[in-house]
């Protein structure tokens, strides 16, 4: 099964708000799993991650944001990669937990309840810690991947990122996503 078919099965390519599909089910390896556990992370946490991604890389009329480049589904596929580092999962969740605690400390609210300015303030403060800096840096790196890697990997749909930045891809382009190393 190629990457695109896999994503269609997940429902990601059928909706611009993929995480709203709370009742959808994932069919993988012949089993049925509730969608609220993708790559070992709950739907609730994925919704929080999505809000952070969309703040870090906002949509604009003339340029795609995290939403248009499929940043969340892309990050989910990254976590499903062959032999993905297990601590990426835990680091992702730890950063989310730290962010939530900082939101409560500064504003006594959740990240989703904050204004854009307040969200920026929280992220700036989180950035001051080593873990916080690395967490935001990691999310930004994956956003750049979702923006500019070949669409076979699930981000950059129809080359939307390339078009925005007037980037010409090389050829031949990959026809399927390479899911693991050759060695």
């Amino acid at each position: 099964m190629n990457r695109r078919k896999f994503l269609i099965r997940l429902g990601y390519l059928l909706s611009s708000t993929p995480l709203a599909l709370s009742n959808a089910q994932v069919y993988a390896a012949g089993t049925i799993k509730p969608l609220n556990d993708i790559a070992g992370i709950t739907l609730s946490d994925w919704n929080k991650i999505t809000l952070v991604l969309e703040h870090l890389f906002p949509s604009e009329p003339h340029s795609p944001g995290a939403k248009e480049i499929n940043a969340t589904p892309y990050l989910q596929t990254v976590l499903l990669e062959h032999r993905q580092e297990k601590n990426t999962h835990s680091f992702l969740i730890k950063g989310l937990t730290d962010l939530g605690a900082l939101c409560q400390k500064l504003f006594r609210q959740e990240f989703k309840q904050l204004t854009s300015t307040q969200r920026d303030e929280v992220l700036k403060q989180l950035e001051q810690t080593n873990d916080g800096y690395n967490w935001i840096n990691m999310l930004l790196d994956y956003i750049m991947e979702a923006l500019l890697t070949d669409p076979v990997y699930g981000g950059n749909p129809e080359g939307i990122g390339w078009q925005w930045l007037q980037h010409q891809p090389g050829f031949p382009r990959p026809t399927t996503a390479l899911k693991r190393r050759y060695l």
């Binding site: 870090l56 906002p58 950035e127």
Partner: peptide, 9 residues
């Protein structure tokens, strides 16, 4: 520090 948001774009 890190750049994000519209400034990064």
């Amino acid at each position: 520090g890190l750049l994000w948001g519209k400034a990064l774009k």
